[in-house]
Design a binder for these strands. Structure first.
Length: 411
RNA sequence: GGCCCUAUCGUCUAUCGGUUAGGACACAUCCUUUUCAAGGAUGGAAGCGGAGUUCGACUCUCCGUAGGGUCACCA
């Protein structure tokens, strides 16, 4: 590679970090890392009304959580002088002009009587997209579009082109929804004498109805998935697989492996539906990769709000016995377990298992687990024993025996 | 509606002219008695339609059709 790769992270702080944005930035990250390039984070906050610090924070924190890092941080709101310089130059060159708007001044919507418009050369613009091949546009339909509200207030298309040029951005990997923005940005590039970066428009992440993923499809913010307890490694892994794959049957990757395997040429053309079921599976696979103590930490964290952790379990007598096993047998096994637990040896787990193996694991373990948790899904009984401690465990085992006895009497 | 993009199992995808069209998720059935939202096995499940090009098309071309994106003094 003769030229150093430079990519940008250009989120707009008008909302929380969207998983679609995260995926796009991830691709930029993987590509840059793979080629030893540089990444510039550029907060696109030229819209003063909609941009909020809290959103910028959410985006920054989300990326940090995911492990998607960058080398430089900047905000468009802090680059006013640069835009002003280019705007003035375009005005001088005649590639842009002050336009007296004939429409009435609309103060409410911040519309002006005078704006800066781009002098559209009205031509065909052709560009090569790494993902889609050649794309051609007739820019006549764009007319003389507005590039700034004033010398001090540049608009998106203009600011983006100036920044990409000034920062030496070599590759622009962005969402497919930007394809139609590309021609006008190329026009501005040509007007200011900027070189053209390589474009790669990646497919969108879709909701169940195949339309662009948005709030109405459910959770779209990375922070929401973080709160749901997903591992950042799993999130990165799954996102990478949406719209890209290495061409092999490997599906579980670490960030390092993704960097190693990433290839722009293998990016998909069509949009991909976000499937949380598959995310869950990827998450599970990543949990398996974690060291035992980390897994245990995760387990404790995940069950800390369960009913059996915050209060005493309420038992349904019909659920205590395992399958064909009877209530009488369940009571007998529970009494046996209670006896073993009360002795409180350090290897209580092994002792219980040994007993369970002789009389049928399920016959002992199901009633035991149910007695301890009162839930149809919970960690295994031995683990519960450890988590709850001797006192609590004995109390719950005792309670289950009482419940069984009462049922016996009344029937 | 104009312009642009896309099109293989329900979903994510492999295939880069010749395959019994492969894998994963999900689903179903069975096994597994540390239940399950664990583990194992098995199974059903796909090339949008029509023309071409070719000895041969999922793969290349064109036309349809369908879906999506975009049309701001937002980004």
């Amino acid at each position: 590679m003769s030229e150093k790769v430079i990519v940008r992270f250009p989120p707009s702080p008008t909302g929380n970090l969207h998983i679609g944005t995260a995926r796009t930035l991830l691709f930029n990250y993987l590509f840059a890392k793979k080629h030893g390039g540089k990444i510039v984070f550029r907060s696109e906050d030229t819209d003063r009304e909609r941009s909020k610090k809290e959103f910028e924070d959410n985006i920054v924190e989300g990326l940090e959580w995911l492990g998607i890092n960058y080398d430089e941080f900047t905000r468009q709101s802090e680059r006013g002088e640069i835009y002003k310089k280019y705007l003035q130059k375009m005005l001088d060159d005649g590639t842009a002009y002050l336009s007296q708007e004939s429409i009435l001044k609309d103060v409410e919507n911040n519309n002006r009587e005078e704006v800066i418009r781009f002098k559209n050369p009205n031509k065909m613009v052709k560009f090569d997209d790494v993902v889609r091949g050649e794309i051609e546009f007739d820019t006549t339909e764009l007319h003389d579009f507005v590039i700034a509200k004033s010398l001090e207030e540049p608009l998106y298309h203009f600011a983006v082109v100036v920044d990409d040029y000034e920062m030496g951005v070599t590759h622009i990997l962005r969402g497919e929804d930007h394809i139609s923005n590309t021609p006008r940005q190329i026009l501005i590039q040509e007007a200011i004498g900027a070189s053209r970066p390589v474009y790669a428009h990646i497919p969108l992440i879709l909701g169940q109805d195949r339309s662009k993923l948005s709030k109405r499809h459910g959770a779209t913010a990375v922070s929401e998935y973080r709160n749901k307890g997903y591992l950042p490694e799993a999130m990165v892994n799954y996102l990478a697989l949406l719209g890209w794959n290495p061409g092999t049957e490997k599906e579980i990757f670490t960030m390092e492996e993704l960097i190693q395997e990433f290839d722009l040429g293998k990016i998909q053309k069509g949009g991909a539906i976000f499937d949380e079921k598959k995310l869950q599976w990827v998450n599970k696979e990543h949990i398996k990769l974690l060291p035992p103590d980390k897994q245990r930490e995760l387990l404790l964290e995940s069950i800390k709000d369960e009913s059996y952790m915050v209060g005493e379990p309420v038992l349904d007598v019909e659920q205590i016995a395992w399958k064909k096993s009877t209530k009488e047998e369940a009571r007998m096994h529970l009494e046996k377990v209670r006896e073993m637990v009360s002795k409180g040896t350090f290897d209580i787990g092994e002792v219980v298992m040994k007993y369970a193996e002789t009389v049928g694991k399920g016959n002992v373990l199901w009633p035991m687990r149910y007695a301890l948790s009162g839930a149809t899904a919970s960690p295994d009984p031995i683990t519960l024993l450890e988590i709850l401690g001797k006192e609590k465990s004995l109390k719950r085992l005792e309670n289950a025996i009482i419940v069984l006895n009462e049922a016996q009497v009344s029937s």
